[in-house]
Design a protein around this nucleic acid. Sequence first.
DNA 1: CGTGATCTTGAGGGAATTCAATGTCGGTGG
DNA 2: CCACCGACATTGAATTCCCTCAAGATCACG
Lengths: 232, 232
Amino acid sequence: MLELTTPERAVNQGRALSRPSTRKPSATAGRELGGSIECMGASMSFGRGVEIYGEGEPAEYFYKVLSGAVRTRKVLIDGRRQVGGFYLPGDVFGLEAGENHAFTAEAITACKVLVIKHSAIVARAKLDHAVAFELWLLSSNEVRRLQAHLLLLIKNAPERVAAFLLGLAERASPGDSIELPMSRQDIAEHLGLTVETVSRTISYLQSVGAIELSSVRRIVLQDRSALKRFDP
Amino acid sequence: MLELTTPERAVNQGRALSRPSTRKPSATAGRELGGSIECMGASMSFGRGVEIYGEGEPAEYFYKVLSGAVRTRKVLIDGRRQVGGFYLPGDVFGLEAGENHAFTAEAITACKVLVIKHSAIVARAKLDHAVAFELWLLSSNEVRRLQAHLLLLIKNAPERVAAFLLGLAERASPGDSIELPMSRQDIAEHLGLTVETVSRTISYLQSVGAIELSSVRRIVLQDRSALKRFDP
DNA sequence: CGTGATCTTGAGGGAATTCAATGTCGGTGG
DNA sequence: CCACCGACATTGAATTCCCTCAAGATCACG
């Protein structure tokens, strides 16, 4: 099983292997992409903070998170930042067809990602119609995720944070305890708030008994219904 | 050429023909859907304010605007509203695969819409791979549109309105004069602002000479570069 | 155990909202 | 034809929520 890994020292060097086109993506690990697509692409590892692809680069690959966590973000010229989404194991990102990526993708934690060339999928889609359908379904899921995120951004701070925590718990953890792979800053940029407001809001949710912090990055959802009360 | 039209009296009756499944969508008018998909589906007419599909209904059709304008919106239980997007002639909406619609679609003005069953497209995609690709491309465009919209919602009021006007001008009109099919309320709900703020901001943009109002619903972009200065 | 990054908390200010009133436009009927 | 009506739009004043700036606390790491 061929596995491409970025050397440790790449961690703080910005871009690392974001254009795997120079490698032959021979068939390997990949379990399934969405459902019926399997056994295509290469597994790659990225260190914490390393860029997976950059804004403006041609979108030639899909990426499926195998382990760790990834964020997509865009930085405006005046420095404001927006995190488009967080991707956890099982999630697929980089779905934008044609053209170039509008966002940059970065590893939040060390992570493994299955990388699949668009053209490989399209070629397979011609043989297997289920693959073509899968492709549509994946983009479609991303549309839904973005639609839901739009709704978040019209709410107030407690509602945004509560919805974020509930969403994360639903995706990432079986129980009521969630490990946050991302920083407060990341959360803030995702929710369209400042770090201070996120921090204050988390404190507030704690003060009303909705959540409990066993550590800074580990949150226990003490009272889900209280949280849901914020989420109309 | 078969053409299904909603009777005038349907205008203020809420839902009207939102589930065209009872009609045989025989091949008709449709020019092209995206590029290569053509001659499928039925052309339908909707009166101003009429619902095209409702939130929660199964997503079984694509819709391509032939004339007029459409908005998608979602109403939260507490009454807050979010307009997901405005769709003008040539635009495709209702791309969410599987599942149900998360948003409601309504005709802003009287409009004609080409309605195409998902299954019809999927069937064609099996014969023509270009159609499958087209399908992906359409969802992908929607992803891009939503990504861009996310960025809007972290900006301040003048930036949001300026970006909105520039975007609309780019899509809808060859010159510098744009006709707004939607109300200030619609714009506000799209931009995550209140009507009052939108109104104030338009007045402000007018006061600095960026735009001119020949009527309430017709805006002339006097100084595009001034507008773009708001759009980082 | 220090050092820097990350997180929390506080105080003050500003942008958008809320509430309220006035102004404008298009349509309808006298 | 024009006056009236209701829907839509604009403007004003007060308030609220979040941001900004600043300081202190906590955590991870060498």
